[in-house]
Lab assay of single mutants.
Amino acid sequence: VTLFVALYDYEARTEDDLSFHKGEKFQILNSSEGDWWEARSLTTGETGYIPSNYAAPV
């Protein structure tokens, strides 16, 4: 399992994006889409796309 942590807060701009807060942890589901990764929040259980430059490996 690849775990990442949010470096900044992010507010979803589309219904496919995932809103999150700094410090929140994610499981990365798909990182082959370039700058946007499909991720599941370990806090909320929700799935959506996150900007890859807002996350770092745990």
Rank of each mutant, 00 (worst) to 15 (best):
L7K: 06
D9I: 03
N53C: 14
K22F: 05
S52P: 07
L18K: 01
E24Y: 04
G23I: 02
Q27Y: 14
G48I: 03
K22Y: 05
E11T: 13
H21P: 06
S41C: 06
V1K: 12
D9T: 07
F20T: 02
E15Y: 09
T44D: 02
G23Y: 05
S41G: 03
I28E: 00
P51L: 07
T44F: 02
W37I: 08
S41D: 02
P51I: 04
S32E: 10
S52T: 07
R40F: 10
R13P: 07
S19R: 04
E33C: 14
T44C: 04
A6V: 04
S19K: 04
L42G: 02
Y49I: 08
P51H: 08
E46A: 13
N30V: 08
A39C: 05
F4H: 06
E24P: 00
G48D: 01
D35N: 09
T14G: 15
R40I: 11
A55V: 15
K22A: 12
N30F: 08
N30W: 08
A39Y: 02
T43E: 14
W36C: 07
G45Y: 06
G48F: 04
Q27P: 00
Y8A: 08
T44R: 04
A39V: 15
V1G: 13
S19V: 03
H21A: 12
A56K: 09
T47W: 10
F20S: 01
S31D: 12
A12Y: 02
S31F: 15
V1D: 12
F26P: 00
L18Y: 04
E15P: 14
K22P: 03
S52G: 07
A12K: 09
H21L: 12
D35I: 10
R40K: 12
T47E: 08
L42D: 03
A39H: 00
V1R: 11
Y10I: 02
E38P: 06
S31P: 12
K25D: 01
T14Y: 15
S19N: 06
E24H: 07
N30I: 07
W36Q: 06
I28N: 00
E15D: 12
D17I: 11
W37A: 03
S52R: 13
G48E: 00
I28K: 03
D17S: 14
H21Y: 12
D16R: 15
Y49Q: 08
A55H: 04
L42Q: 06
Y54G: 07
Q27I: 15
T43Y: 09
R13F: 08
Y10Q: 01
A6G: 04
Y54P: 01
V1M: 13
A12W: 02
V58G: 05
S31T: 14
A56C: 09
S41V: 07
Y54M: 09
G23C: 07
R13N: 09
A56F: 08
E33N: 15
L29Q: 05
T14Q: 10
L3D: 05
T44K: 03
A39R: 00
A39F: 03
S52M: 10
F26V: 02
R13H: 10
W37R: 02
S19H: 07
T47F: 08
Y8V: 07
G34W: 09
Q27K: 08
T2F: 12
F26K: 00
D16F: 15
Y49E: 01
I28L: 07
A6W: 02
E38D: 05
E33W: 11
P57N: 05
F20G: 09
Y49A: 05
E11G: 05
W37Q: 03
G45T: 03
W36G: 03
E38I: 15
A56D: 05
E24A: 06
G34F: 09
H21E: 09
G34N: 12
T47N: 05
T14S: 14
T44Y: 02
E46V: 11
V5R: 04
L7A: 03
P57V: 08
T47Q: 10
F26S: 00
T14R: 15
T47P: 01
G23K: 00
Y10N: 02
S19L: 02
F26C: 05
E15H: 12
T47A: 07
K22C: 08
Q27N: 07
L3V: 14
D17K: 15
T14K: 13
S19M: 03
A6S: 04
K25Y: 15
R13T: 12
W37L: 11
G23W: 05
L18N: 01
R40C: 08
A56Q: 10
Q27S: 08
S32Y: 10
G45N: 08
D16T: 14
E33I: 11
L18M: 14
V1S: 13
L7F: 03
G45D: 05
L29A: 05
S32G: 12
G48T: 01
S52L: 06
R40P: 01
F20N: 01
A39E: 00
N53S: 14
R40S: 05
V58M: 12
A39G: 05
G34T: 11
L42P: 02
V5P: 00
E33A: 13
W37M: 08
F4T: 03
I50D: 00
A12H: 05
E24L: 03
D35W: 09
V5Q: 07
S31V: 12
S31L: 13
G23A: 03
E11Y: 09
L18E: 00
T43D: 10
K22H: 06
G23D: 05
D9F: 05
G45S: 05
N53Q: 11
A55R: 02
T47M: 09
S31G: 10
T47S: 09
V5H: 05
R13Y: 07
L7H: 03
A6Q: 00
S32K: 11
T14A: 11
A6I: 03
N53A: 14
N30M: 08
Y49P: 01
G23S: 03
A6R: 00
L29E: 05
Y49S: 06
E38V: 15
D16E: 13
F20Y: 01
D16G: 15
E24K: 02
S31E: 09
S41H: 07
P51R: 07
E46Q: 14
F26R: 00
V58T: 08
N30P: 04
K22T: 07
A12Q: 06
S32Q: 11
S32N: 11
A12I: 02
T2W: 13
L18S: 01
G45E: 04
N30Y: 08
A39L: 02
Q27A: 10
